[in-house]
Amino acid sequence: MNLAYRDVRHNLFRFVLTCLGLSLLMAVVLAMMGIYNGAVIDALTIARAPKVDVWVVEAETKGPFAESSRIPGSTREAVARLQGVADAGSVTYQNADGEYNGTSRRLYIIGYEPSRLGGPQDLIAGRPITRTHFEMIADTRTGLSLGDRVRLGRNHFEVVGLVRNHVNSGGDPAVYISLLDAQTLQFEIDPAAVRVKRAKGEVSESQDSVNAVIARLHPDADPEQVTASVRRWKHLSGMTQVQEETLLTRSVIERQRRQLGLFMAILMAVSAVVIALIIYMMTIEKLKQIATLKLIGAPDRTIVWLIMQQSLALGVTGWFFGLGILSLVKDFFPRRVVLEVPDALVMGGIIALVCVVASGLGIRAALKADPATALGG
Rank of each mutant, 00 (worst) to 15 (best):
M1H: 08
A4F: 14
Y5F: 15
V8E: 07
L12K: 09
R14M: 09
L17M: 14
G21D: 07
L22W: 04
L22Y: 04
L25S: 14
M26V: 11
A27P: 04
V28E: 05
V29Y: 09
A47D: 15
A47H: 07
A49Q: 11
V52D: 08
V52H: 03
D53C: 04
V54H: 01
E60P: 00
T61C: 05
K62S: 10
F65C: 02
A66K: 05
E67V: 03
P72H: 11
P72R: 09
T75I: 10
Q83W: 04
G89P: 04
Y93F: 15
A96W: 03
G98H: 05
G102L: 07
T103M: 08
D122Y: 04
I124T: 10
G126A: 08
R127T: 12
R131S: 14
E135M: 01
E135G: 05
I137H: 07
T142G: 14
T142A: 08
G143E: 03
L144T: 05
D148A: 11
R149H: 13
G161W: 06
L162Q: 07
G170H: 07
G170L: 12
D172I: 06
I177L: 11
I177V: 15
L180W: 00
L180N: 05
T184H: 13
T184F: 13
E188I: 00
I189S: 09
A192Q: 11
A199P: 01
E202I: 13
Q207L: 10
D208N: 13
V213G: 03
V213D: 03
H218S: 08
P219Y: 07
P219W: 07
D222F: 02
D222I: 01
S229Y: 01
R231G: 09
K234P: 05
L247T: 01
T249D: 07
S251W: 08
I253R: 02
E254N: 06
R255H: 11
R255G: 10
R255T: 12
Q259S: 13
Q259V: 14
G261L: 03
L267W: 10
V270F: 09
A272H: 02
V273M: 14
I275M: 03
I278Q: 06
M281K: 09
T283Q: 03
T283V: 09
E285L: 13
L293E: 06
D300A: 15
W305T: 10
M308R: 15
L312T: 05
T317Q: 02
T317H: 01
F321S: 06
G322E: 07
K330E: 15
F332Q: 13
P334Q: 08
V338P: 00
V346G: 14
I350L: 13
C355W: 04
V356Q: 10
S359Y: 06
L361W: 15
R364N: 07
A366P: 06
A372C: 01
A372E: 09
G377A: 12
G377Y: 12
